[in-house]
Write a protein that binds this DNA or RNA. Structure first.
Lengths: 155, 155
DNA sequence: AAGATAATATTAGAGGTCTAACATTATGCG
DNA sequence: CGCATAATGTTAGACCTCTAATATTATCTT
């Protein structure tokens, strides 16, 4: 049932090649990268968002749910879900702030640190692959563009 | 509770500026663009994925669930959800193939077409904004890079 | 013609993401 | 001090996305 009547386009053709709309291209590229990461991490039983949050927790130990939401540009409920899954998995633990009774500090467990190391190699390899065949000037343009697109999600 | 003990970074600083990891930048940029689209379309009661699928259905009328999954690079269950919501909303209708009893053809309703037109203006405006401040050479590099990143989600 | 293979559509289950609403705790102002 | 405001964490509900499994229908092979 490939091309029934009017020959549908293949992936990368038509509006979905380099001439397509930028927003569409951006979504496709991000979805493909997410899927590659998901599959690269699947046997370690960790998801890409969990890896991202775990990385931040390792960089800024003891920060709170709200802190993570701010630096990861996610909402508080989203972070609650991700940290909940990391906790259920044993990668992080939580403790109440000494004086501020409401705040919960999050710490990466030894098991979580070991897990993080194993993830890093694979994710970095995928990141490297994103640059294959591009000159430094092009890379600089891409970085500048992505940073600009990431700013002001509210605007 | 801004900077409690060790001064957490602001958005766009640290690993999240143009020097950050490309995969991370890509995710942030796509998430920001998705959120902008969500908010731009919210009052029309349609989501970005629904807009994407509706656009494809208008371009290739009468194609099936599986056709959409192929050209949008999504899985069949995902498309089932999105088309189901479009149908519940009255933007599309479905009919059985004349001879192939299993295939369901999807058609955009008049209401769906009118809706699509209203969406297009807003989405195109957001797409234009993605290019503000970038030269043609840079745009070409970005397009080439996004297309490369979007290829081979399985690899 | 009969059985094996492939394609289509759907359901179930898990996880991520948002908005809206709520409960709890800090902080600030009169 | 006491109340208003803000920050933190959570729950509820909706949607998108995946993998895995199932049912139905077409097609191919022998």
């Amino acid at each position: 049932m490939r091309n029934r009547q009017m020959s549908l386009p293949e992936a990368g053709e038509d509006k979905r090649g380099p001439e397509g709309r930028l927003g569409y291209l951006l979504r496709q590229a991000a979805a493909a990268h997410r899927l590659r990461m998901e599959r690269a991490l699947a046997d370690l039983d960790i998801t890409p968002p969990q890896f991202t949050v775990l990385t931040m927790l390792a960089s800024y130990p003891g920060c709170s749910n709200a802190d993570i939401a701010r630096i990861a540009v996610l909402t508080a409920p989203t972070v609650t879900v991700i940290v909940g899954n990391l906790e259920a998995r044993g990668a992080v633990t939580r403790r109440r702030h000494a004086e501020h009774g409401r705040i919960l500090h999050i710490d990466v467990s030894a098991q979580g640190l070991a897990l993080l190391e194993r993830c890093r190699e694979r994710v970095h390899a995928l990141d490297e692959a994103l640059l294959a065949g591009f000159a430094e000037e092009e890379e600089a343009a891409v970085r500048r563009w992505l940073s600009a697109a990431a700013r002001d999600p509210a605007a």
